[in-house]
Amino acid sequence: MSAADAGAGGPRYGSTPTGVQYGPLVADDAMRCAELETILFAGDGPWSAVAFVSEISSRHNTCFAARLNGELVGYAVLAGLGPVGDRDFEVHTIGVDPQWQGLGIGRMLLRRMLDVADREGAPVVLDVRTDNVPARTLYEAHGFEIVGVRPRYYRPSMADAYLMTRPARPAASAGPGAGAGRDPGAGPVPGARENRGEVGGS
Score class of each variant (00 low, 15 high):
residue 105 I to E: 13
residue 42 A to I: 09
residue 157 S to T: 11
residue 51 A to G: 07
residue 147 V to R: 14
residue 139 Y to L: 08
residue 158 M to E: 07
residue 96 V to W: 09
residue 174 A to V: 12
residue 185 G to Y: 02
residue 130 T to S: 09
residue 43 G to P: 07
residue 120 E to K: 14
residue 99 Q to Y: 08
residue 24 P to I: 03
residue 133 V to G: 08
residue 31 M to V: 13
residue 138 L to A: 02
residue 40 L to P: 06
residue 40 L to R: 12
residue 179 G to W: 10
residue 121 G to P: 06
residue 31 M to W: 03
residue 102 G to A: 08
residue 30 A to D: 08
residue 68 L to A: 11
residue 152 R to V: 10
residue 105 I to C: 13
residue 152 R to Q: 11
residue 104 G to H: 13
residue 46 P to C: 12
residue 118 D to K: 10
residue 200 G to V: 07
residue 48 S to C: 10
residue 150 R to T: 12
residue 1 M to V: 01
residue 117 A to G: 02
residue 94 I to G: 04
residue 184 P to A: 07
residue 191 G to D: 02
residue 9 G to P: 04
residue 146 I to W: 00
residue 100 W to P: 13
residue 3 A to N: 06
residue 7 G to V: 09
residue 119 R to H: 00
residue 108 M to E: 15
residue 71 E to M: 13
residue 144 F to I: 02
residue 31 M to C: 06
residue 190 P to L: 04
residue 140 E to R: 13
residue 22 Y to F: 11
residue 109 L to Q: 08
residue 18 T to F: 00
residue 116 V to H: 06
residue 188 P to L: 01
residue 21 Q to K: 06
residue 147 V to C: 12
residue 151 P to R: 13
residue 55 E to S: 01
residue 70 G to F: 14
residue 32 R to E: 04
residue 138 L to I: 03
residue 80 G to W: 10
residue 147 V to S: 08
residue 138 L to S: 05
residue 134 P to I: 11
residue 138 L to N: 02
residue 137 T to Y: 02
residue 150 R to E: 15
residue 198 E to Q: 00
residue 89 F to G: 08
residue 53 V to H: 12
residue 201 G to T: 14
residue 77 V to H: 07
residue 162 Y to I: 09
residue 112 R to C: 13
residue 187 G to S: 09
residue 10 G to R: 13
residue 124 V to P: 03
residue 191 G to F: 11
residue 79 A to M: 00
residue 172 A to M: 12
residue 72 L to W: 14
residue 124 V to D: 02
residue 88 D to W: 08
residue 128 V to K: 13
residue 35 E to T: 15
residue 22 Y to E: 11
residue 125 V to H: 02
residue 105 I to D: 12
residue 120 E to P: 04
residue 82 G to L: 07
residue 185 G to P: 03
residue 63 C to S: 15
residue 115 D to Y: 01
residue 18 T to M: 04
residue 135 A to G: 15
residue 136 R to N: 06
residue 146 I to A: 01
residue 19 G to W: 06
residue 63 C to W: 09
residue 71 E to S: 15
residue 121 G to T: 07
residue 123 P to I: 05
residue 66 A to G: 14
residue 144 F to R: 05
residue 41 F to E: 12
residue 183 D to W: 09
residue 31 M to A: 10
residue 48 S to D: 10
residue 64 F to I: 08
residue 149 V to F: 14
residue 58 S to D: 09
residue 174 A to W: 06
residue 36 L to D: 05
residue 200 G to Y: 05
residue 152 R to E: 14
residue 17 P to F: 09
residue 192 A to S: 09
residue 134 P to M: 04
residue 191 G to V: 07
residue 178 A to E: 03
residue 166 R to I: 06
residue 35 E to I: 10
residue 42 A to D: 15
residue 202 S to K: 03
residue 3 A to G: 08
residue 171 A to T: 09
residue 60 H to R: 14
residue 18 T to I: 07
residue 178 A to W: 04
residue 186 A to M: 03
residue 135 A to Q: 11
residue 13 Y to S: 08
residue 127 D to Y: 11
residue 46 P to E: 14
residue 146 I to N: 00
residue 82 G to D: 10
residue 106 G to E: 13
residue 13 Y to P: 01
residue 165 T to C: 02
residue 123 P to R: 04
residue 114 L to W: 04
residue 132 N to W: 14
residue 106 G to D: 14
